[in-house]
Structure formats: C-alpha cells, structure tokens
Design a protein around this nucleic acid. Structure first.
Lengths: 250, 250
DNA sequence: CGACACTTTGAAGACGATCAACGCCGGTGG
DNA sequence: CCACCGGCGTTGATCGTCTTCAAAGTGTCG
C-alpha cells in the first residue's frame, strides 16, 4: 500500500508544502491512490463522508443540483487542489455536494478521521491547510463579487485572463483546458449565454475558434473587463488589484 | 493594556474556543480594544495590512467598490466573527476591501504579524481558525450558489429563514437586525428589487412592515424558497440540507 | 457513414437594474 | 410649533441582460 504512487505525483502539492519528507511519506502511506475515467463520479451529495482527496492529476468538478435538476458548479479542482477540505471541520456526516472527474484523473484519498488527526498532530500541515483555505476563500469572494458586478462577457474575459496567468499560457495562442459547457457552468451562466458572448469579446480583440483562444491585445481585454475604462476611455492599470482577474495562484 | 476588556466580551468567541484561559489572556494582552461609531470606517481597500479584528460587539460590513462606485457587500461580521482572517495567510501587504461599522461596535485588534505567530505556536488556535475558515467557506459557497439558482424573492426568503435560525428569533415576530439597504446589498440585489419582492413574499405568508417581520407559516415559506415544491406542489422536508437556508451557525 | 456529444443560433419572455418621483420620519433651527 | 432637510424606503416606467425552448450546425470516434 505504501508507495503505490509515482513520486512525481507528490511534487509541489500545497498540502505538503515545506513538510519534512518523512512526514510526507507517513501521510501518503495512509492514503490510497484512486484513478477515475472522464465523467466518473468521485462522490455524490449525501454519500457518507468518508474520505477527502488530493488531486494529483486531471480535473474534478464539484457541483450541486437544484431540486429542478439544474447543476451548479461550485468549483474546479486541479493538480494540487484538495477536494472536501471544508467538510473536515464541520459537523457533516455526508458530502454536501457532488464531485465528478471531468478528465482522466488521479486522486489521493485519505480517510477523513485520519486526515483530521494528522492536521491536529502536525502543526505545519495545519498551517498549509489554513493557507489553502484562505486562498480558496478569497477566490470564492471574488467570484461572488464578479457574479453581481460584471456581465457575462466581462466574466468570460476575466476567466480567460486568469487562465493565462494561472497556467502561464501565451495569451496569443492557447487552448481552453475545460469544455465550454464546464466553463459556462463555473461562471454561473447558461451555455447559450456563454456562446453568444464570445462574439462580444471579439470587440475586445479576443478570437475563439473551437477550444482555441487568441487574445490579440491583452490590455484591451483588461479594459473591457474593467467597466470603468470602457465608459471613461481611460487606462486600466490596476485590474489585477481590482478584480483578481489575473491574480496568481498560491 | 492587559485587561482593557470587559471579560464578558470574550465569552463564546470561536477563535478562543477550548483554549486554556492562560492562552486566551496572553493573546488578549497582545490585542487592543477599538470602539467605532455607527458608520465609522475600520479600514479601507489599499490601507497597509496591519491588524486583524475580532468583533466582540456590533456589526461590521465588509465591501468592495467597483470602478463605477457601486458597493458590493462581501460579508457582515457580528460578535464572534473575525475580520481580515483571509488576509493573514496570503501575501497581501494591504487590505483587499473596506470594512465599516454599521452599528456601534467593539473590536479587538491584533497586529497581523503577532496573530500569525500565535497561530504558528498554538496548534489549538490554528485548529480554531481552520474551523472558522471552513465554515465561512461553506457559507460563501452557498451564497454564490443561491445567487445563480434563486430569484430575488427566494433569496430574501432564505435570508429570513436563516436569520430566525441563527439568532433564535421567533418567526412569528421579529425585527430585521440590519437596514434593508444593507440586506439588499448583502443579497446582491438593488434596494428597489428588494423592496418590490417583499410583496411577492406575502404570497408565502410573510408580512414585513418597516423592520418588523412576521412569518405566518414557516413551512410555506420554506416551500416557496425551494422551487421544487412550488412547481410540483410537493412537500419540502430537507430545505436546510439543500440550501443551508436555515443551517446553524458554528 | 452514422451516432452522439458538444456548440451555435434564433426568437420569446422573465427578471432585475436603472432613472425618476414621491412618501415617510426624525432631527434641527428658526 | 412649524418649516426644512436628509436618510431611508417605496413605487412606477423603461430598458438591457440572461434564461428558456427549439432547431440546426460541427466535430469526433467507432
């Protein structure tokens, strides 16, 4: 059971950041590798809360379903992210939402009880979790803010800018890492709205064909996203400060 | 400096939960009591990040301003809540939003550096912070979810239900703890929209006159909030599970 | 080629934002 | 005591945005 994992899977995982190798090994020994096919379910809302997961490869979509069946994407977790953290310290006995692999994915699964215990005993681990949660919280706050303050086209623009910054994409030429359906859901809009608003982004110098994106003029897109500039014609130097649209990932 | 505080101010503060009294005293000795008048500013976006605050009395509104000047309420902090936590573990050097007292308020202010150090040295304190952040994160997630899945009237209904649960109000007869303007902003809608939708809540058996609220039929309001029931005519037993509308505060 | 998932497009309607005017109330000052 | 004012909330009319339903287009993979 110990060392099921390709050690490279454990590089640069924020949860383990700065932890002595011995600690990491001990933790990992208590985990178990799970592999998922694209579309496979990790857990569903109401399942007994048994494990939390560290994503070492692929992408996991977390979502809730409204009573009418509409799916609301809560978050997308990729390599290095943790799924289920916020469940650990709440008195939940079941998962509060669904998680599904949207790509071929590899997760490390840890029994909740054991992971919680590890956090209690290892203060460095606890600090890492605090840093992760703080960061997630700030992102959630910004996402909610954008939901009420920006229109669909601007949210998409923000998303693209953030993608470039996060993954060090070349703005002139990159591929969307998720399906448009997934992105639309994550941005809190319908797929049709997403599709239609891609045209509006053309005015901001963004071309999207299939999953290929070309941002011809970064600065123009930044101004487009920041309403102030579009109305006043002025410059927009502090977008990242204002909206976190291109802020760096921990 | 030590013991500026009425000791009752320190009862039931989640940050200090289960901490040995000695630890609490030591922590509090490093803090400073700040009092604010209604409307007074605690800090503004861009101020150097110097302190985090524990609310021991009153209410603090945290908000950002869009470039056009619209204010977006990020959260309302009341007795026991912490303001600025998510700043501590991020590489910010300035506050990322504004904080303002919306009532006469008392805060305990702690220098960020010192508070961070305390968390590093006191693992129980770290666990408390983890619990708080987890809880806030779950709330933020639910708020964002409601923003995209419910209409204005339903969000207001949810808010009222949550109020009753949180403060143990009698649904038949209670007063809004915040101004309608504040509530509307917190729910991500305009004051006019809020005002208009109060009428729609009448259909769900809710009467609001001034700041006085009377929910005549809890169950009907819960069904109103949960679209499933309104369309299918069915019962709605698991609202709290579904939407957190009436979930308990840590 | 054909099946299927994904995406685009069109038309209609619901919803909330915005602008503007008005009502209500508590406080201040004459 | 009354007039005036400012903060707060309500109401009405209009407009833009997003959702919804329906249909057609595109791509991939067997």
């Amino acid at each position: 059971m110990q060392r099921d994992f390709d050690p490279t899977l454990l590089k640069d995982i924020p949860v383990f950041h700065d932890l002595p190798p011995g600690d990491v090994d001990a933790l990992v020994a208590g985990g178990k590798r799970h592999d998922y096919a694209k579309g496979e379910t990790v857990f569903i809302h109401g399942d007994p809360l048994s494990r939390i997961y560290i994503v070492t490869d692929g992408a996991i979509r977390q979502f809730r379903e409204t009573p009418e069946g509409k799916e609301i994407t809560i978050g997308l977790a990729i390599r290095g992210d943790v799924v289920g953290t916020t469940h650990v310290f709440e008195p939940f006995t079941s998962y509060q939402w669904n998680a599904q692999a949207i790509e071929v994915s590899t997760l490390l699964a840890f029994p909740v009880r054991q992971f919680k215990q590890a956090i209690k005993e290892n203060s460095k681990l606890a600090l890492n979790m605090l840093a992760i949660l703080s960061h997630d919280m700030n992102r959630a706050t910004m996402d909610a803010e954008q939901l009420v303050s920006m229109n669909a086209a601007q949210r998409i623009g923000c998303f693209l800018l953030r993608l470039c910054s996060l993954y060090h994409f070349n703005p002139e030429h990159f591929e969307l890492p998720y399906s448009k359906t997934t992105i639309a859901s994550k941005l809190g809009m319908e797929l049709e709205t997403f599709s239609r608003n891609l045209k509006k982004l053309k005015d901001a110098g963004v071309e999207i064909k299939g999953s290929h994106v070309a941002i011809h003029d970064l600065h123009r897109l930044e101004c487009f996203v920041c309403n102030h500039c579009s109305t006043s014609g002025g410059d927009c130097q502090s977008l990242s400060e204002l909206h976190g649209g291109i802020r760096e990932h921990g």
